[in-house]
Simulated assay, not measured.
Amino acid sequence: MEWMAWTWPTAIFFMVIAGLLITFSILAIKFPETPRKGVLQIETTRGDRLFITLLGSAFINLAWLGIVGAHQPYAMLVCLAYAAAVFRWV
């Protein structure tokens, strides 16, 4: 970890992202899907919804940090609710 001066939370974050990408790649191979239209009326696949979730979660965390400034783990709960909504309705 010292070669890039990373902290363990940063390494875990990137490991989770890598794990998600690997999992979604395996799912795409084993269970191909056709794009579907959700509430936004755009066609999305699982990968598209994952990207929307990650991007939205980044903005949620930045907003939380700017507005609340503390208790960052609670932002994760908001992100999980947002992810569930994206995968359900988008």
Rank of each mutant, 00 (worst) to 15 (best):
E2A: 14
W3Q: 04
W8P: 15
P9M: 09
T10C: 04
T10M: 14
F13K: 14
F14S: 09
M15Q: 11
V16D: 00
V16H: 01
V16P: 08
V16C: 06
V16K: 00
A18R: 07
L20E: 03
L21T: 15
T23I: 11
T23P: 04
S25F: 09
L27R: 10
A28Y: 05
A28H: 11
I29Q: 00
K30P: 00
K30Y: 11
P32V: 15
T34F: 13
P35N: 12
L40R: 13
L40C: 05
Q41K: 10
Q41W: 06
I42Q: 01
T44I: 09
T44Y: 01
R46E: 08
G47E: 12
R49W: 01
T53R: 03
T53A: 06
L55A: 10
I60F: 04
L62P: 00
W64D: 04
L65W: 03
I67K: 02
I67F: 04
V68L: 01
G69E: 07
G69D: 10
A70Q: 01
H71F: 15
H71K: 07
Q72I: 14
Q72F: 10
P73A: 08
Y74V: 08
A75D: 03
A75E: 06
A75I: 02
V78M: 05
C79Y: 03
A81W: 02
A81G: 09
A81V: 12
Y82D: 06
A84M: 06
A85H: 05
A85S: 08
V86C: 02
R88E: 15
R88K: 14
W89F: 14
W89Y: 13
W89D: 08
